[in-house]
Write a protein that binds this DNA or RNA. Structure first.
Lengths: 231, 231
DNA sequence: CGTGTGATTGACGCCTGTCAACGTCTGTGG
DNA sequence: CCACAGACGTTGACAGGCGTCAATCACACG
């Protein structure tokens, strides 16, 4: 447990579903939530677990993935500050369909499910906002599905790099802020680690990207977009 | 427009989100909804359209698909009696992320979005039920994603056949009730039509299935499960 | 300095997509 | 009633993308 974070003062709340709560509701929520620091590599929950609440990401990055045959991971999405994880399982009353693992040190605020349901019952704007979020995520999942099903590994990798830049941004030198292993990149686009490595080299040769160890810098966005078949 | 269907009397309502409405709410909804018959091949809405409401499937089957590069369809899911389509787009306030096309003659009841939002604001059980549905669908989408990303075409086809049987059932002779063209099967599992044809022949040779034109009968479920790598 | 994790490269071959040709069936119009 | 068009199904040939295996390198850490 770290120093408690007050929803009312939280600087990422404005991006989250919490923003729809009244100050009183936020204060009440503070009494029930638990904010913890999770280090890189920490497991927040396992696929198949029954969760007892949801997690609001205050900082850091968490990857959500399913484990397939032979233990290969399929990354479903990344959650960053302002995102909520675990809500799918709570609201559908199923066990977790993914595991959640910390990619970059994260502070997560836990909200017990009974408190969540209380809020949902009393605050219809909050419900609508959650619906909004769930449906948006559903749309992204569907798009992702079609991408993986129809595009080549090369196209998918180019697109993934662009998406990572859009979602997580770049540092002052232009390098993607998010650092993934080659294997994680592979698990994101559903391919083998070696394929990612080979294609990254090709992208480098084509002057689409620069590589410094695990850090990647996109230098020809148009070229990547063309490669990804995006318009 | 066909003979109006009263929600209160509708025999599939018990399976839908409508079941959470009071009799008064149902009666009120009857005044606002429009029930139409759609023939096979009819387009309910196009990807990219902004929808003005949601559709409740009273009977028939509708396929939801995305159109990728080169116009290839990727089927996202099928909707049958009791299912709702178009809600994702309305609730996320985005344009439709899929097209909806009738696979088997269908009766669809249209509910305008302002009525939907009225209900959501006033009836928290209804909201929760919609959340439940959306989150369940999200879980299915995620599973589907991992399947397509990690499994071979052979595994996917075996699994798809099993899923079609689970979701749509079989007739008195054991043949799948849902009739899809080879191309639709291919677009479901993200492969080429020819691959589906070849694999279906192999499954027949392996005595996993019987084929009568477009009708398919599963005769060795265990064999198919093994082939699909399911446990 | 040994150990382990991650990155890289090469060899190899199979799965699967593409192209082309042909067969089958159904509905339509003359 | 027949001819024809068009949609759908089937089969074969072929190539190349990509997964797998194995060996090696780079780097961090106790």
């Amino acid at each position: 447990m770290i120093r408690p974070i007050k929803c009312r003062d939280c600087d990422v709340v404005s991006k989250t579903i919490i923003k729809n709560l009244s100050d009183e509701e936020k204060d009440k929520l503070d009494l029930d939530k638990a904010c913890n620091l999770y280090k890189r590599g920490a497991i927040v929950y396992h696929e198949g677990n029954r969760l007892s609440g949801i997690f609001c990401v205050n900082s850091g990055i968490v990857k959500l993935f399913k484990t397939g045959v032979e233990g290969r991971e399929q990354i479903i999405r990344f959650a960053k500050e302002g995102d909520v994880i675990g809500y799918r399982s709570i609201l559908s009353e199923e066990v977790a369909c993914t595991s959640a693992k910390v990619v970059e040190d994260a502070i997560l605020c836990f909200i017990p499910s009974d408190k969540l349901f209380n809020l949902l019952k009393k605050n219809s704007d909050f419900s609508l906002e959650l619906l909004h979020m769930a449906c948006k995520e559903l749309g992204e999942s569907n798009s992702f599905l079609a991408e993986i099903a129809q595009k080549s590994v090369r196209e998918r990798l180019a697109e993934a790099l662009l998406l990572l830049k859009t979602n997580f941004g770049a540092d002052e030198n232009g390098y993607l802020k998010i650092n993934l292993t080659r294997e994680e990149l592979a698990n994101l686009i559903g391919t083998a680690t070696e394929s990612v490595i080979r294609l990254l080299s090709e992208f480098k040769d084509d002057n689409f990207i620069e590589i410094q160890g695990r850090k990647i810098k996109l230098i020809d966005l148009a070229g990547l977009k063309r490669t990804a078949n995006l318009f």
